[in-house]
Amino acid sequence: MAKILEKRRLTPITQLYKVDAPLVAKAARPGQFVIVRVREGGERIPLTIADYDREAGVLTIVVQEVGTTTRYLGQLEVGDEILDLVGPLGMPLEIPVEGHIVGIGGGFGSAALLCLMRELRARGDRTTIINGAREKDLLILNEELAEVCDNLELCTDDGSAGFHGLVTERLQQLIDGDGPGRPDFVVAIGPMPMMRAVTETTRGKEIPTLVSLDPLMIDGTGMCGGCRVTVNNEVKFACVDGPFFDAHQVDFEEAVRRNKMYVRQEQESKDRSDCMKLAVGQD
């Protein structure tokens, strides 16, 4: 059980939670994740550790409400308990290169850059965050991200804030020497199409790039093999070997295909939770 201490809406479908999880907060490192279950009979879903406060024993997670479990979670209030929370899972992010590190975030992924970029800056790296979204109101955590890096670059598809265009277009400009300049290392966390595009942008340019794969998971301990992905023609279990992998070696096509395995069931479950929500609303 992990009690929700704070909850804040970031966008219409994204909320930030601070939860009481002293053991996990103490052990957590950037790039790791937790698995939560929010109700009896509920699914186990992975969520990235966005930030942690070791002393206070508090963990920050940012959740996009896309289906049944994330929406059940969204209904919990401050003071409520998350039924199960286990972690930290996965390998901590290792950035073997020093210099100009560029973190690219989209969707809930931007949140995961918080603890990572703070630690990299503390280590002495020059840090840039490219935070992207469709429009201004969907950009999350701008203030917090600004505090943890040297340069914060905002991008919106519609130009309502910051750079008018995709994060990869801005990345290309950096590679070409614009703004904070060419990255020595890139980390991308966000929706699969974005990570794929980043991968293609840095491919062949001698810029090592890591992406955070998000396959379907159950246990998160290497027991089920459901999270397997192919990297460099080898099968890896993302929960124990990842979730970060060398972007240029990832078989994205397979990863995308495997994530769609249960689309029909996910819709069925979502429709059903819609009905249940209505039912709750009526009494």
Binding site: G41, E43, R44, T68, I218, E266, S269, R272
Partner: peptide
């Protein structure tokens, strides 16, 4: 087996794991 025994996929969609 985990999907069924631990997560109760046999009871989907009452349970959430398919």
């Amino acid at each position: 087996l985990t999907r069924v025994n631990l997560m109760r996929a046999n009871d989907f969609p009452n349970a959430d794991t398919p």
